[in-house]
């Protein structure tokens, strides 16, 4: 009961936000929030460009999406798989343990840090 409520809420939120981000372009609109880290420090954070990337992706512009935040677009299938495993943690502990292997988390950690540094150097 509680489980199905959570899933329903998540799907409704995804649909609502999906529509907002599909319909309005964050690059030209002022209603979308700006990145705190970028505003405060002047440096991009690993998540900068995510809103524009999602807008581009929802409009079928994969190349544009990769240009705004390549890491997010590459990570989306992995995030989806991890979310599935999270919901099935007690039913499929083996899948959960494999996805949460130390090596994979290390790889992601290094990838995020590298992405953070490199995108500020090369202005990605």
């Amino acid at each position: 009961m509680r489980r199905s409520l959570v899933i329903t809420v998540v799907i409704v939120l995804l649909l609502v936000f999906g529509f907002i981000y599909y319909a309005i372009d964050p690059a030209t609109s002022t209603v979308f929030p700006r990145c705190t880290f970028l505003t405060l420090t002047g440096y991009k954070c690993p998540g900068c460009g995510s809103q524009r990337a999602i807008h581009a992706l929802l409009n079928g512009d994969i190349k544009g999406a990769l240009g705004y935040n390549a890491m997010l677009i590459v990570a989306i299938p992995w995030i989806a798989l991890c979310l599935f495993a999270e919901g099935q943690r007690t039913r499929r502990p083996r899948l959960y343990e494999r996805l949460n292997a130390p090596l994979l988390i290390w790889l992601f950690l290094v990838a995020v840090l590298a992405w953070w540094v490199l995108r500020n150097i090369f202005n990605w």
């Binding site: 990145c35 954070c45 690993p46 998540g47 990570a75 991890c82 988390i105 992601f108």
Partner: peptide
């Protein structure tokens, strides 16, 4: 079973919330 590593939430908060504290969450997972 393994306790929740919160890895997905750590990733989502790192890539969507614009704050470096998400990195700390990844280290904890």
């Amino acid at each position: 079973p393994c306790p929740p590593t919160n890895l997905v939430w750590a990733i989502i908060s790192t890539l969507l919330c614009c704050l470096p504290t998400g990195i700390v969450a990844i280290i904890y997972s």
